[in-house]
Design a protein around this nucleic acid. Structure first.
Length: 638
DNA sequence: GTAGGGTTAG
């Protein structure tokens, strides 16, 4: 590679020439870049070349190429040397060379923005590549808003942005969480006529998706002239993120149909598995699993990890374990997924055992592993173990507890009835407790009918301006459980005044890969008549089996009979009745509920599991309720 | 002509 040395010598600086060569020593060049083996020139040699070559500093591409290669491969400190050198020659006139240097300074792993800015200002006539490099560099930085400066400036200087310029500023908008900025960029994209660039439109979709403008994202998708797999994947991610989980599954089918030109890939599977996990759609998840095997993705670590999570969240911890067992290599994500899966399915002891096994295998736990371990303690009521892990995570593993860890502890202490300990723990936190934390404790107050603490927590939530319908519902539950109907009416009035909308409870049950959805008193299902008949029949059978309606679950101060009627059409019960109706005897009924399942539905499912000899699994917002042979497998309601 | 873009595990 003598040619490189020759090249460097051929563009010397009259002043810094010697210094330059001194720093680009052969040792550096052979160690930092094995491609170059230079010999160190003597000062005589250098001077000789200097005088010989200074007169022709032409920037023909065959002479630039090796220098560009050198720029790309050298370290930061040597870039500074090269920069100084270029400043003293006319080489900065060459857009190719200035771009190579700018790219290296602005986008390499050790990028330096203030240096990039300084260098950019020295480029005689920046072109679109220079501008795009700056826009991109800022879009990746901590001040993404700065990229707009260059986006505007290039226009002012008569350079029209290309689709990539817009793509980078769209990324900036995503990082800035700015929908308004995104709308402005979108308008520019249209006026620049770049709407046919599908990659750019995909970025824009993602922006709308993240800002919860699902319809706008879909509109962009619909208007795209060409949709590749990534575009479809972004659509799935958009649906999942914005609560249209069933539509996300629909996309997986559409992609496999002949009318769609794009086939699902590994990322599609990853996204669809998330959707299945959210919906508890086991059969669909199994279909995705088959697809993964058929397409040779079966050993992909990320897909296996997602499968573990999906099976766990569908209440099939056994299948999750099968995937886990079959993995040749397991990382911290695999172990954490398995630990959380065991924990949420009521196998607290096994989860803790898995945690110990993981450490024996030399896998270092991270913060999410501890979330799983602490939730194992919480779901199994292991208070002492919980404290032990909570204390050891910071002492032994140097992991500072985050809101999730505190949340698990509050849940653990709260469920165990140690409400004051839980309250004190929240107050002891270094960071201000968020609404979720208070909500967890409020849930515990509901379990233990603790009125005064419940009221205090509502005050905290009001202070955070974060009260949601669910919080008032919990408070109502607390009042109704102690028969304080005046307070119940008061809270209802308050909710009305504040215009608080309650989220409708919704239960889903999957049948042959199709997800059926029910709300309270639902009459939208095509088989509604059969379902209500079945529910009446079940009601009679369960009464014989010892089921008594738990009337405190209903909040209104009605007569007991009326309460019972309202209770009997809760969405969970409709979903379970449909399950009994539509599946062969003995089939497990799996229900996913978006809110908390009430005590009455819990008892209903428990008795049903015995009378009808059905395994019933209800997954609600906080946990699994697992029933078999008339018993609940984990600690009953709490 | 020059550099360069989108989705993504617990």
């Amino acid at each position: 590679m003598r040619a490189i040395l020759h090249l460097l010598r051929s563009h010397p600086s009259p002043i810094s020439h010697f210094n330059f060569h001194l720093h680009l020593s052969p040792r550096f060049l052979s160690s930092s870049s094995s491609r170059f083996h230079l010999h160190q020139p003597t000062s005589e040699e250098a001077l000789q070349h200097h005088s010989h070559h200074t007169q022709h500093l032409s920037t023909t591409s065959h002479r630039e190429k090796p220098l560009i290669s050198l720029i790309k491969s050298c370290s930061r400190s040597h870039l500074v040397q090269i920069h100084a050198h270029l400043l003293r020659t006319s080489l900065l006139q060459s857009p190719t060379i200035s771009l190579a240097l700018l790219t290296h300074i602005a986008l390499s792993p050790s990028r330096n923005l203030s240096y990039s800015l300084r260098f950019f200002s020295q480029i005689p006539k920046p072109n679109i590549c220079h501008y795009n490099t700056m826009i991109r560099a800022y879009s990746l930085s901590n001040s993404p808003e700065e990229s707009f400066r260059f986006y505007r400036e290039m226009r002012r200087n008569g350079i029209s942005p290309d689709p990539l310029s817009s793509s980078f500023v769209t990324k900036s908008c995503i990082r800035m969480n700015s929908l308004l900025g995104g709308l402005q960029v979108h308008a520019k994209i249209l006026s620049d006529g770049h709407q046919s660039d599908s990659l750019l439109m995909t970025t824009l979709m993602d922006l709308y998706s993240i800002r919860q403008k699902c319809d706008d994202a879909c509109k962009v998708f619909d208007e795209m002239s060409h949709r590749d797999t990534v575009a479809w994947n972004v659509l799935i991610s958009c649906y999942t993120r914005n609560g249209r989980t069933r539509d996300a599954l629909g996309v997986f089918d559409t992609m496999q149909s002949s009318r769609c030109g794009s086939q699902p890939d590994d990322v599609t599977c990853l996204l669809v598995l998330q959707a299945c996990a959210n919906l508890g759609a086991l059969e669909f998840g199994e279909r995705v699993h088959s697809f993964i095997r058929e397409h040779g993705y079966g050993n992909a670590l990320n897909l296996c990890n997602s499968l573990i999570a999906m099976y766990s969240r569908c209440g099939c911890v056994g299948k999750a374990y099968d995937v886990f067992k079959g993995m040749p290599n397991k990382d911290v994500v695999s172990w954490s997924a398995m630990i959380s899966g065991l924990a949420s399915n009521g196998h607290g002891r096994e989860a803790i055992e898995a945690f110990r096994e993981m450490q024996r295998m030399g896998i270092v736990p991270d913060d999410q592993t501890f979330t799983g371990v602490l939730s194992a303690c919480s779901h199994s009521g292991l208070v002492d173990e919980g404290w032990m892990f909570f204390n050891s995570m910071s002492k032994e593993f140097r992991i500072m507890p985050n809101v999730h860890h505190y949340g698990c502890m509050v849940d653990l202490l709260g469920r165990a009835g140690l409400l004051n300990q839980a309250y004190d723990l929240i107050l002891s936190m270094a960071v201000k407790p968020d609404a979720t934390m208070w909500r967890t404790l409020l849930g515990a107050c509901r379990i233990h009918c603790h009125v005064t603490l419940g009221e205090r927590i509502i005050e905290h939530l009001i202070e955070l301006k974060a009260q949601e319908a669910g919080d008032y519902i919990l408070l109502l539950n607390i009042y109704s459980s102690v028969d304080d109907w005046e307070k119940v009416i008061e809270v209802r009035k308050l909710m009305k005044e504040k215009g608080i909308q309650t989220t409708p409870g919704c239960s889903t049950v999957e049948l042959k890969g199709v997800v059926h959805e029910f709300v309270v008193d639902d009459i939208s299902h095509p088989r509604k008549n059969e379902i209500y008949e079945m529910l009446d029949e079940i009601g009679m059978q369960l009464k014989i089996g010892g089921y008594i309606a738990e009337v405190t679950s209903e909040l209104h101060n009605l007569g007991a009979d009326e309460k019972e009627t309202i209770l009997s059409y809760h969405s969970e019960k409709l979903a379970i009745a449909f399950g009994v109706l539509a599946t062969p005897p003995g089939t497990t009924i799996r229900v996913a509920k978006n809110l908390r399942t009430c005590v009455d539905c819990h008892n209903f499912a428990k008795v049903l599991s015995g009378v009808y000899n059905r395994e019933v699994i209800i997954r609600d917002r906080t946990r699994f309720h697992h029933f078999r042979e008339g018993r609940c497998s984990c600690n009953d309601y709490w």
